[in-house]
Design a protein around this nucleic acid. Structure first.
Length: 365
DNA sequence: AGTTAAGCTTGTGGTGGTCGACTTC
DNA sequence: TGAAGTCGACCACCACAAGCTTAAC
């Protein structure tokens, strides 16, 4: 962890003074909102997010991101691993460009689409090492982030208690490619019923933290997990049914090494199929893999998530990718959908124009 | 001869009320 | 099936921007 900048205290206290408070979910108005859906311009809790975005395929394509830790009003697009916070571009600019230039380790933060399971959400939010059992049976302790061998071992002992020193592992792992969600065109559902690769999302934000509200997020995910028993794998269901709550280090280790999103459902074999980049970009919508009968089967993207090599073939350097991603995010953020009058004079002119059934008519001279 | 500013030319896109096709309930 | 709601197309004019030309230094 990088030592805080001398000015960070001042800037933090300054932000604290007029710091807005978290707002309730726009949908249920009771839980605290932690997610932002740009398409709906709505702040949602995890439960409502699932309810809203599982209604149809169109809604499921909405990209959601964590709410900014600072303003609670905008979608976060930057992860500051030094502060363990997620920030929108404006707040990131204020806190990092003005007072803390270049000292903090930051990186782009991805959103997610579709309706990922709790385990997938854990991965997306950087809690991949916690495991679902911790959600189900764990206490109120936070946790999250981290990865690697050291963390895997620590996760065995997790079970509701905070991983000691987990914050030391907040090392941003920059995405190897520009966000696939950004690249894949969200064309209407074709006849073959395949879904785009965004369902479920790739394990973005790995080793990332989910900001300063880990406890709230974990709490909501815990509630979500209780209503999602089918998401558990066979072994975990057996644990539930048999009432055997004892920890199985080997099992935990296995699930830690091979998170659920990397496993084909109903199979004990990890999905090692590597999908070429052109496939991810929409050339093919399905992945073939052999079945036990030797016949190739095609699994939908919603059921199978392929392992994407970390070092994707790309000419861009990491810095260039980050820069391009930031530019894209900035542009996306400033995109305006409402009608915007660029030339007031033209508006005045158009309003005074002669019309025939609403259409502009020629002026007879 | 090179640079800069002003003037000119030309093509393009923005503007709003209404209609009709389409979707939703 | 019909009512209600949504959304894009349509129209003519001209402000605007970009490119070009000319003059001044």
């Amino acid at each position: 962890m990088t030592a805080p900048h001398p000015n960070s205290a001042n800037s933090a206290s300054h932000r604290q003074q007029d710091k807005p408070s978290p707002s309730p979910c726009d949908y249920c108005n009771s839980s605290r909102s932690v997610l932002y859906c740009r398409a709906d311009s709505a702040k949602l809790c995890f439960a409502c997010d699932r309810e809203v975005h599982s209604t149809n395929q169109l809604f499921s394509k909405h990209t959601r991101t964590l709410l900014c830790d600072s303003c609670y009003d905008s979608p976060a697009s930057i992860l500051c691993s030094t502060e363990s916070s997620v920030l929108c571009h404006n707040c990131d600019w204020e806190s990092h460009n003005l007072s803390l230039p270049t000292l903090h380790e930051r990186g782009p933060l991805e959103g997610f689409t579709a309706c990922p399971s709790v385990s997938e959400l854990l991965t997306i939010l950087g809690f991949e090492d916690i495991g679902k059992k911790a959600l189900l049976y764990g206490g109120d302790g936070g946790g999250g982030g981290g990865g690697g061998e050291k963390d895997s071992a620590a996760a065995v002992d997790f079970m509701g208690s905070e991983i000691e020193g987990f914050s030391d592992f907040f090392v941003w792992d920059a995405p190897s490619v520009v966000s696939l969600d950004d690249l894949i065109s969200s064309s209407a559902a074709p006849s073959h019923n395949f879904q785009a690769m965004e369902v479920p999302p790739l394990p973005k934000n790995r080793k990332a933290a989910c900001g300063r509200h880990r406890e709230e997020i974990l709490s909501q995910l815990r509630e979500l997990a209780k209503s999602e028993p089918l998401d558990l794998d066979n072994e975990q269901q057996q644990y539930l049914q048999s009432g055997n709550m004892s920890t199985d280090p080997e099992h935990d280790f296995k699930t830690d090494i091979f998170p659920p999103y990397e496993w084909q459902r109903g199979s004990n074999e990890p999905m090692n199929q590597v999908v070429p980049l052109n496939t991810l970009l929409g050339e093919e919508a399905a992945v073939e893999h052999p079945t036990s009968e030797g016949k190739p089967s095609v699994s939908l993207k919603s059921e199978t998530v392929s392992v994407v090599p970390k070092a994707a073939p790309c000419e861009l350097t990491s810095q260039e990718r980050d820069s391009a991603l930031l530019r894209y995010k900035q542009k996306k953020k400033t995109r305006r959908y409402e009608k915007h009058i660029r030339y007031e004079s033209r508006k005045v002119r158009a309003q005074s124009r002669i019309r025939v059934k609403g259409r502009f008519a020629k002026i007879e001279h």
